[in-house]
């Protein structure tokens, strides 16, 4: 298997981002940022991969290990879980440990409230503890859920409460609804982390550095272009959230029609949002397709630049080394990153 974190990306991915940093990943149609997000997840969460039983590895949860809150608007939890498991990350186990939580922004009920939304509440705790693999519990059909492991004894009540809370759906597409949803998710993650540490000494302490990863927040802007959500409001939402977390990673679409044309209000708002975030960011990793056509052994181009917020703003922080690499995603989820002309 190809190296999980490509060596050329090590300097950018390894370790925690600086405090209050904003990293923007941009992708286009055909060059999605998913693999890059997964590499970030892997680099943040890889430390405590040893055991998978809750009770055993309590000691391994060190103080400085970050927790990750993943908010995804275009992809469901199953996708992230499957892809992460190829990198050796067990998101369920990490969630039980208070290291990971997920906010599901891909729900058919997000914009179209369903009459039967009461059935969203999970009924049996045993099923959720063994197979929390569907972002939304299946309703009305008996799924033949594969149960590879027998139901383990119920964990401590605190953890059990967290198990139901670590995966929350967004319930309301308005700015206020998203804001409250995300804030409560961050709070929940910090709380679970503190409870997991056993001490419970203050949630504002140094433990529980939360890294917020939002996948395609710009969708919210596009889907509600004329109504309440504006790029300014969304940026304010983001600023509020960034106060609570250690660092933020955003994926945005930077397709040419979305950024360049700026004729319709959708395009204007999108361009304003993406460009202003790019100015705020410390680092920008942008993916695009090959300019010269298509090739079998190249999936696309990765360009790493410093954003407007990095470098000279504070003394002593080096500017991001700007690079342009080629990358190739291979079949098993591995990624090769290499220089032009190199292998």
């Amino acid at each position: 298997m190809t190296s999980r974190t490509p060596p050329l990306l090590e300097p950018y991915l390894a370790g925690l981002p600086d405090e209050a940093a904003l990293v923007v990943l941009t992708g286009i149609l055909g060059a999605s940022t998913n693999w890059l997000v997964l590499r970030y997840l892997h680099s943040f969460l890889k430390q405590a991969l040893g055991g998978d039983e809750d009770e055993d590895d309590e000691t391994t949860t060190a103080e400085d290990e970050p927790s990750v809150l993943l908010v995804s608007f275009l992809r469901d939890y199953t996708f992230w879980k499957d892809s992460a498991s190829r990198l050796g990350l067990d998101l369920d186990a990490l969630a039980r440990r208070g290291r990971f939580s997920f906010v599901d922004g891909l729900r058919s009920a997000l914009f179209v409230p369903s009459s039967s939304s009461s059935s969203f509440t999970t009924t049996s705790t045993t099923t959720t503890s063994t197979t929390p693999c569907n972002a939304i519990p299946d309703r009305g059909r008996p799924t033949p859920t594969p149960t590879p492991t027998p139901p383990r004894p119920a964990p401590r009540p605190v953890v059990q409460a967290h198990q139901q809370k670590w995966k929350q759906p967004l319930t309301h597409p308005s700015l206020v609804g998203v804001q409250s949803g995300l804030h409560s998710a961050v709070d929940e993650l910090v709380r679970a982390r503190a409870a997991r540490a056993g001490t419970g000494t203050g949630t504002g302490g140094s433990n529980g550095k939360v890294i917020l990863v939002i996948d395609q927040l710009d969708f919210l802007l596009a889907a509600a272009a004329t109504s309440s959500v504006t790029s300014l409001g969304l940026r304010e939402l983001l600023l509020d959230l960034r106060e609570k977390v250690h660092a933020t990673i955003l994926t945005l679409s930077a397709d040419e029609p979305l950024v360049v044309a700026q004729t319709t209000s959708l395009e204007k708002e999108h361009a304003a949002f993406v460009l202003s975030l790019a100015h705020e960011a410390e680092t920008i990793l942008s993916l695009r397709l090959l300019d010269t056509g298509v090739a079998k052994d190249v999936s696309g181009v990765l360009r790493i630049t410093g954003g407007g917020g990095g470098g000279d703003r504070r003394a002593g922080r080096p500017q991001v080394e700007e690079k342009e690499y080629l990358y190739q995603v291979v079949g098993d989820g591995g990624v090769r990153v290499f220089e032009r002309g190199g292998q």
């Binding site: 729900r107 058919s108 179209v112 889907a223």
Partner: peptide, 16 residues
């Protein structure tokens, strides 16, 4: 945009 994108988003969610 709000109509069709919300529709496609809902459809995507249904598909998943």
């Amino acid at each position: 945009p709000s109509e069709v994108l919300q529709f496609l988003h809902g459809l995507r969610a249904l598909l998943r």
